[in-house]
Nucleic acid binder design. Structure first.
Lengths: 226, 226, 226, 226
DNA sequence: TATGAATGAGTGTTCATTCAT
DNA sequence: GATGAATGAACACTCATTCAT
């Protein structure tokens, strides 16, 4: 059982083995249900070595969170250039997001499912990263509103410019919704065979971006009469 | 110290005390981190009694999930009548959803955060309930598309009926996104003071419904040229 | 191995069993070398029960220290009445001390040998008890000096009263020496077959009390010329 | 971070560094609580080197005991010449003892506190050294009794020689008491600021030697009537 | 109906010790 | 001469669970 126990690897290599094993098990079973014994075994390493290198279960989990959060952030950032138009930034970012979560399902499980259910230290770490995404999307929405992007797609004449009309607070709500939708679609795409990252991103852009455009043009939704 | 230990209550009362305590603790700490000792103490009951009534920790957790899922489903269902127009059904359902999650944060935590991180038996139970919501929303979207609802709000003449143009598979994706957005906004509303259930529902309707309408009218989003 | 595991005893009984086992093992092996497993086994009890009743190894050790310190203090106090002459108080106290340490060697080992080598919390607890003994002996010495007891044994007429001539600080030094001698003789008496508590006490009274008398009469020792 | 790790020192030097570190840590924390990791770090040396030079933790502790025991014995022996009168030998020996224990508190802690609480191998080693001290003091007392030293201090004419009157067994008891008193006073002197080795030695001589003299002169103490 | 008494099995963590270089 | 890499065995402690009353 467990990986073959090879010998005498340099520290950095062993550490990655341990983190790989830990991300898998934390992702599958959760923080509390994953035992250090099992992690060590799957890493092909004795338990004391795990403690020697990673200090404690908490530190190991934190290290997993940080590694996966950085990887995800990096994957998205590498596809998004600030000089792109907002719409393109969002599109590329979403594609990178869905691609990465599809390729690293356990890492995504650690971030999205497991870390958030654990107490303060872990939930906070991932909340901070998520807050950055929210802020990024909020800025994108505001930028698009400011630049009148939503009206530019041909149907409305560029002459009549609606004022931005979008308070920051409302944009934050939309960003929250958009990110939540993305998280949900990531799980859906991973669980539904045949749904690619490209399709998931397209679905979300259709759902969200078009809706925002509609809104920008003044067609705000209002509750139906009781 | 825990709750005051009163004596000789009928079984049903005791069981509710236990479930209340369990939902609180499972919601706060998670399934594994919540101990039966603590649950019994908070319920004001001895531990063997918990086992006598609820059999095991797994069964207790399942009972919590079922109770909270039923409560949430009931809260939504009670506000939604099948004879309402689809838009109204969604609006009322969302309001009920946001209201209920705001009033029962621990129950919602059990369903949304904790149950999904645990293995097969629990995650499946809540997944089934969630699937029902998704299916419901999918039907709403399809119904709206079929009835041309999105065009009805005055701007387009009811005469020219667009064909449905919305394959079920695509509607399911939208539903997934909409539900994910709702879940995200529920947490956001609970964490952000001053955001009411009404506002959260409005934000989501604006974000989603208006977007859907835009889409229905043929203004589908397509990826920008690289 | 281990005691026969009898069943269903009331808590107080079990606690004494545990303390008995713990005092034995702590006394023989020391705090760190005694394992909770071994203590539980010798007490005829499972390990969780030890934790249920005594909380932790530290608390268990503290409980041992307190129990044995109280027993020793009580044993001595029960033989010493404040209305006795100082000399008699010391004599009776020492006899009680040597008797008790002979009858409870492990308890004495816990107090004298083991507790003092452990860190702050434990060493302090026993140091406080020892300080009480020192203070008691100091008062005895001062009282004897004040009352001129040392001159009363016939050789000097009671008429000529020497002034106390004994500063408190010096009395404390003597008390420290006397108590140290007593501790040493307790181990010696326990290790040397045929030495009774009575004999040990007599030896110490001869060694110390007579010497004090000599000193009181003005025959102070002074260093020999180099 | 521990001592600076300098390179390539001769073996004897490294060994002393290790023993220094070990004596400090064993003295402060005790045998079991001091870890080889910490010792190696404080010695500025890698752990395998400690094993290469000192074989095992037990051997290392033994080496500490032997080094400190030898140092203490040597310190005392160097001040005591067999041709001195017994009283002077004791006085000089005590002064050397108090001086050394004051200057090497950790070494003294290893010998007096830590080694005696550990099992057979260590306690025996230090017990053997202590037995030598006891034997030495016993001989001193017997010699003084034989030579009538106690009567020589002027008050009694040297003409009338009391017979020794001191059985060896009784002398051993006095020696045990005296050494115990010395050990106690050593700790007291170290813990009480302002008490010098000279003062501690004087206190003990006053307490013990004068008492012995009193005894020799036939004024034996006898228990008071009940 | 309800509980005090009790435990088997497992957890995270540490330590003395060795090997390969 | 000296060390980075590695582990078997143990430790304190906790938990879900049951029995006897």
């Amino acid at each position: 059982m467990g990986a073959v126990r090879t010998k005498r690897k340099p520290r950095a290599v062993r550490e990655q083995q341990m983190l790989d094993a830990a991300v898998q098990l934390f992702g599958q079973r959760g923080y509390m249900a994953a035992s250090m014994d099992e992690i060590a075994e799957r890493a092909g390493v004795s338990k004391p070595l795990v403690y020697l290198y990673l200090n404690s279960k908490e530190d190991l989990f934190s290290a997993c969170i940080r590694r996966e959060a950085t990887a995800l952030t990096e994957a998205v950032r590498s596809q998004v250039r600030p000089d792109m138009p907002a719409e393109r930034q969002l599109w590329e970012g979403l594609r990178a997001f869905f691609t990465h979560t599809a390729q690293h399902p356990e890492g995504w499980a650690v971030l999205h499912r497991q870390a958030r259910t654990q107490g303060e230290p872990f939930a906070d770490e991932v909340a901070a990263v998520r807050a950055e995404f929210i802020a990024f999307v909020t800025q994108l929405i505001l930028a698009a509103a400011r630049d009148g992007v939503f009206c530019a797609r041909g149907d409305t004449g560029p002459g009549e410019r609606h004022e931005p009309a979008l308070p920051e607070h409302e944009a934050a709500g939309f960003a929250e919704a958009l990110v939540g939708a993305a998280e949900s679609l990531a799980a859906w795409a991973n669980a539904t065979p045949g749904v690619t990252a490209h399709q998931a991103a397209t679905t979300l852009m259709n759902f969200a971006w078009a809706g925002l455009g509609n809104l920008m043009e003044g067609r705000a939704w209002s509750p139906p009469a009781a």
